[in-house]
Design a protein around this nucleic acid. Sequence first.
DNA 1: TCAATGTTGATGCAGATGCATTCAGTGGCG
DNA 2: CGCCACTGAATGCATCTGCATCAACATTGA
Lengths: 164, 164
Amino acid sequence: MKRKPSTEATAAWIRLMRVQSRVLDAVEQDLKKAGFPPLAWYDALLELSRAPRGELRPVELERQMLIPQYSTSRLVDRLVDEGLALRRECEVDRRGQFVEITEAGRELQRKMWGAYSAAIERHVGSKLSDGDAMKLCGLLDRLGCSCSEAQQQVVGSKEAAPAR
Amino acid sequence: MKRKPSTEATAAWIRLMRVQSRVLDAVEQDLKKAGFPPLAWYDALLELSRAPRGELRPVELERQMLIPQYSTSRLVDRLVDEGLALRRECEVDRRGQFVEITEAGRELQRKMWGAYSAAIERHVGSKLSDGDAMKLCGLLDRLGCSCSEAQQQVVGSKEAAPAR
DNA sequence: TCAATGTTGATGCAGATGCATTCAGTGGCG
DNA sequence: CGCCACTGAATGCATCTGCATCAACATTGA
């Protein structure tokens, strides 16, 4: 008699949880040891720096990063406190605003990419051939939830952002 | 010229972060909607219920679950508060203790497995053939960090626990 | 025996998170 | 216009987390 979640599916679930946790931890630790802020800051800065005029509505940022609204609000607070971004009024919709990355923000983003990319290479790249990495992508995408994601194509891009 | 973390590796990293986050969220939500406590409680209860006399030293639990010491301490607090486990003195080493699962704890663990297994099936099992699930396991294991894990074999076991 | 060192577990504090609510502004419609 | 529903964003509060530290006991070794 077949079990509801097959042994294989259950094993995959466990691996997914354990391995992600390990790898994320390792990468975050590398960043921290290099004196950088958490990955979430990088993600936000990257999204901002890629946006048309280096600015985004908080609500856009929220969608890009897949984090809750209040979380975005507080993340922006911190970026602004550190002078990495600034809030600007939105003319056309007075309840909204724009968050604009500053030069300091762009600089931090670039510097972080150095440490970040090295960490990805150390904890992922060096353990998997490119072919296997592609296979892994394919399998993970199948779990990608029914939720059609704004599949950002990393292809051709120099830098990358996860979303937690 | 080849980039340090290849495009493929970077894509795999992003998928790993995004997909895990989505799937974990989905499963946790299912559990919560069914009125159950967080997954971590299940993990702890499962480890305890599997242990020889339903008891474990906190330090063992810590190793099994791969969570920091203070986290274990507080998790046990909560389990005890809810009557799911109890702390007992350790005769041979007076600074230590044993945590023993109660009947209520065992019962909750069993009940949770119902919802939990259904969630695994819904969010993982149904999206992957057993063969693909195995392939995924294999690839993820390769990222399994240099840290040799106490590879728990799920095979033959009726229930499963991730570790965050 | 006694000091030094190691291990086990708890805890105070600061910062982060989740949740629900609030507030301001917008757009639709009678 | 005046009312109402909705959207964008902030915030109070309780809980949770990470970090550092502490206290109690154990072990070693002179």
